[in-house]
């Protein structure tokens, strides 16, 4: 069983939800970022989304835009992100690592080279923001074993039911349900609407469903946990890095924040 399936199965057995953490790789620089990722995993993150920074992040709000630019300004790129995953894997062998990226950097590396590098780095899946099912075959069909590196599919509140079912039927790893329209970052959550979408998605799929976008506090997690197998927190964690990037307390702050979020996942 791969790390993604193993993680969700173990959590289900304990009646826990997965805390999925998004962090921008290389923010503000390689060393600090690697230390933050290690600390976050040690503090209880169940699944890590490692955000590969892109110059034109059209699906992201201000917080992740800024983090991306900080990382790029310090020379972050795809090969270094893959190296960072490899470094992290030496420290932690169990947390599934999802490479979260816009398509162009991956497209430039090419599917074969990316696949090999992901296998070498211990990356368990990829999530490509701007690569919908309509276009992804050109890339993922070139992976020697697509099962070994699943592409995590996104479902939006705008996705009609028929499309939801079609995407869910082919999903691998887990499904990422976007909780609201718009970009990443803090915003209001309509729990009733989210519950309806999540229920439709659970009924249509055999893989775990994680909710993301606008989830920033333990309270948000408690509200949405009944409808999900996992909850994604991104901008709220990235903000901590942004505000305390130079502080000696950074790792401690990230640790506390993750612990608090994870506690809300225990039900």
């Amino acid at each position: 069983m791969n790390r993604i399936a193993k993680t969700f199965a173990a959590l289900k057995a304990k009646n826990e939800k997965a805390l999925v953490a998004y962090l921008t790789a290389g923010d503000p620089n390689y060393e600090t970022s690697l230390a933050v990722l290690k600390a976050a995993c040690d503090a209880g993150v169940d699944v890590l989304e490692m955000g590969m920074p892109f110059s034109d992040p059209t699906a992201d709000g201000q917080v992740i835009q800024d983090a991306s630019l900080r990382a790029l300004a310090h020379g972050m790129n795809l090969p270094k992100s893959l190296a960072m995953a490899k470094d992290l894997r030496k420290h932690n062998q169990s947390v599934p690592i999802i490479l979260f990226s816009y398509y162009n950097p991956l497209f430039q590396m090419g599917p074969e080279a990316l696949y090999a590098a992901c296998m070498d780095s211990g990356i368990d899946g990829i999530l490509v923001v701007d690569l919908p099912p309509e276009e992804s075959d050109e890339f993922t069909l070139k992976f020697p074993d697509p099962k070994a590196l699943p592409i995590i599919r996104l479902i939006a509140p705008t996705t009609p039911l028929a499309r939801k079912k079609a995407v869910a039927a082919k999903a691998d790893g887990f499904l990422y349900l976007i909780t609201r329209t718009g970009v990443t970052g803090v915003g209001s959550l309509d729990v009733g609407k989210i519950a309806k979408h999540a229920t439709e998605l659970h009924n249509a799929s055999n893989v775990p469903v994680c909710l993301g976008f606008g989830i920033s506090t333990a309270e948000d997690i408690r509200q949405l946990a009944p409808y999900a197998d996992g909850l994604v927190v991104g901008s709220a964690l990235v903000k901590t890095v942004a505000q305390n990037g130079d502080s000696p307390k950074l790792l401690e702050l990230v640790t506390q924040q993750v612990k608090k979020l994870k506690a809300a996942c225990l039900g």
């Binding site: 398509y103 701007d130 919908p132 276009e135």
Partner: peptide
């Protein structure tokens, strides 16, 4: 060409 956008925009 093609349609390389996030899922939120695909239905639109």
């Amino acid at each position: 060409g093609g349609q390389y956008v996030g899922e939120t925009l695909m239905p639109a």
